[in-house]
Nucleic acid binder design. Structure first.
Length: 641
DNA sequence: GCATTCTGCAA
DNA sequence: TATTGCAGAATGC
């Protein structure tokens, strides 16, 4: 048996670590099941014989790195009965031996790729990406404890296997770092003794196998099975593909833009320091506070949550009327923000192997059912300002490809119209006119052609405000009108759309009865404060309940659309790739010569994913980069396929 | 180093 | 009585 473990030459550090490990390392922990560690071909034969006839198993990979695109496979664990769990190492510490990956891979591939052997696990999106790196298609994903736990309690931010084991099984998992007496950060899986790794890895598979029936039953009790089985579980594979695909970044353009921003930052900073002192840091709110309010004596308006005088952008914009410093500081801050967060950090995020950014799309984070994005967050790339658009232009299509942006038009307002069944709001959507202008006309009781820009702007603000539960005060500040005017406007709005008001009330009433609200696909969110006595906590709970129905239903709709698109691409054998999801928008990449062919399909598929009682409209654009896209007229003329 | 606060970007 | 996120910089422990 060959040793497949490729430890680098031992540095003094590694040597010390290994010595320390030997003295610290206690016995392999006693597990409540048999750990079967596969180290010989005979053992592997036995494993394969059992696995081949299994209707299902729980599965977990052990890897060297937390980032799935850069991780190396260390081993895999399997469990299909409560009495034993298997670990198949493919890398192990020096001095030990295990079967080489090349030997076991062809056999494991057969069971992992078989659709009819169902797999369960914790965060299988991760395992799917790892396996894809090794050329293995992970098929037959049937259940995921991370996703199930999230559906049961979307309000909880953490769904660790350790926590789930404690919560549902009252079982304390072992921790590798404790076992070998090392901190998490010094831990390298290559230094973990094989017996220990086997116990740890097998335990994860075993815990998942124990947890799954409990979580499944609870999901069933709460009516979450259709959402789980038909939406969230299939979505795992779609998200894994998106992360695997990544999006290309033009690094030369990124460097040029970074130089431009840094040049402008330096100029503005010089200017600011002439007005203050040569060590002044405009990004320090404490320093800026002292300068603006103590030295210059400018008037304080807003405060931070802790009662300090605020120095945020809205304050600076206001003070800019009186003094030049706040204007320059605001400009400096904007530039450092854009450069630091979105430009100078981009090259670090690009994988040299692919030239692309492979961000994570997390399925178990938000309270409403939306996805979230991280490492980096591709859902908050600037869009509004000119400088922001320059940043979007850094995200480009592969050679001979184009990026397509497919954007749901006003999806949350359409869902509001659908749920409330308000006749005039629905009519506004059926008319196909610009919705903000249509609302402005209806609320003011004037024909559409008499709607002014400021009327439309007010309608737009209130349209969004309704979804968030905005009050007169906020509306007044965001529109720059008096509180009385704002109050009047809100009252006119609800007079025009009375069913919107009753919809909000019925959501709140239902939430008070049940303790939770549900979305269009029966997703739940528990809202603990909804039955508090009248006060700020209760009001917040009421806003959250209404917002969750609208935002969460839009999220459901997007998820279904992504699944339908994925199905479409597979069935029609279209070489289109989904790259990014931004809540109501999808970015896709297709070969240039396919664009005109696929766009009508994409549009039709997305618009019919979840039929509402108002039209659902998807706007399609395409171009060489995310920031430089043209509206697709052909799609606009080809609405019904 | 880690956690908190403030700030600001998106839908 | 404005929702949902992620992340960088500054700051304090």
């Amino acid at each position: 048996m060959t040793n497949n473990c490729l430890l680098p030459d031992k540095s003094g550090y590694t040597q010390a670590l290994l010595l320390e490990r030997e003295s610290f390392f206690p016995e392999v922990p006693k597990m409540p099941f048999t750990v079967r560690c596969v180290r010989t071909t005979n053992e592997f034969d036995e494993f394969m014989e059992l696995a081949w006839y299994c209707p299902w198993f729980s599965f977990d990979t052990e890897t060297t790195n937390i980032n799935p695109r850069r991780a190396e496979l260390v081993g895999m664990s399997f469990c299909w009965c409560p009495e034993e769990a298997w670990y198949i190492p493919v890398q192990c510490p020096q001095g030990d031996s295990c079967l080489p990956l090349g030997l076991v891979k062809p056999y494991l591939r057969k069971i992992i790729e078989r659709e009819d052997i169902k797999k369960i696990g914790q965060n299988l999106k991760y395992d799917k990406i790892i396996l894809k790196n090794y050329g293995i298609n992970f098929n037959g994903i049937a259940f995921d404890t991370l996703i199930a736990s999230y559906l049961l309690d979307a309000g909880s931010r953490r769904h660790n296997l350790d926590l789930l084991a404690k919560k549902y099984l009252n079982y304390n998992t072992i921790h590798l770092s404790e076992l070998i007496g090392k901190g998490k950060h010094q831990l390298s899986t290559k230094d973990v003794p094989l017996e220990c790794m086997a116990a740890y890895a097998a335990e994860d598979a075993w815990v998942v196998a124990k947890l799954a029936p409990l979580l499944y039953a609870e999901a069933e009790r709460q009516g979450l099975l259709p959402l789980l089985e038909h939406v969230e579980i299939p979505l795992i594979s779609v998200l894994a593909d998106m992360e695997y695909n990544g999006i290309k970044v033009d690094l030369e353009k990124a460097n040029a833009l970074q130089r431009e921003f840094e040049h402008r930052m330096a100029a503005v900073l010089d200017n600011v320091r002439l007005q203050t002192n040569d060590r002044f840091n405009p990004n320090s709110s404490a320093q800026l506070r002292a300068e603006l309010y103590d030295n210059l004596g400018l008037p304080q308006s807003k405060t931070t949550p802790r009662g300090e005088a605020s120095t945020d952008k809205s304050v600076l914009v206001e003070l800019a009327k009186q003094h030049e410093l706040p204007k320059n500081v605001a400009e400096y801050r904007e530039l450092t923000k854009l450069n630091g967060t979105y430009v100078s950090s981009l090259p670090d995020k690009v994988f040299f192997e692919t030239g692309r950014i492979h961000a994570s799309f997390n399925q178990a984070v938000t309270a409403t059912g939306r996805l979230s994005s991280s490492d980096p967050n591709l859902q908050n790339i600037p869009a509004r300002t000119e400088d922001g658009k320059k940043i979007r232009k850094l995200f480009v299509a592969e050679k001979d490809h184009v990026l397509i942006s497919a954007d749901y038009s006003q999806i949350e307002l359409r869902i509001l119209a659908h749920y409330s069944a308000d006749p005039r709001l629905q009519e506004a959507f059926h008319s196909g006119e610009d919705i903000h202008a249509a609302v402005a006309a209806q609320v003011a009781g004037v024909p559409l052609d008499q709607v002014t820009d400021s009327m439309r702007k007010a309608a737009k603000t209130i349209n969004f405000g309704i979804i968030y539960g905005q009050g007169a005060k906020k509306l007044a500040t965001s529109l720059g009108i008096s509180k009385e005017q704002a109050k009047q406007f809100i009252s006119e709005y609800f007079k025009t759309y009375p069913r919107v008001k009753s919809f909000k009330q019925s959501v709140i009433n239902g939430c008070r009865r049940n303790g939770y609200v549900t979305t269009i696909l029966s997703r739940r969110r528990y809202i603990p404060n909804i039955n508090e006595p009248d006060g700020p906590d209760r009001w917040e709970a009421e806003r959250i309940s209404v917002n969750t129905v609208v935002q969460g239903s839009a999220a459901d709709l997007l998820k279904l659309a992504m699944l339908e698109l994925d199905k479409l691409f597979q069935q029609k054998l279209l070489t289109a790739k989904m790259l990014v999801q931004v809540h109501d928008e999808l970015i896709l990449e297709v070969p240039s010569d396919l664009v005109n062919h696929v766009i009508p399909f994409i549009k039709a598929t997305m618009e019919s994913a979840v039929p509402l009682s108002v039209p659902v409209v998807v706007d399609i654009e395409y171009g060489q980069s995310w920031g430089d896209m043209k509206i697709c007229e052909q799609a606009a003329n080809n609405r019904s396929l």
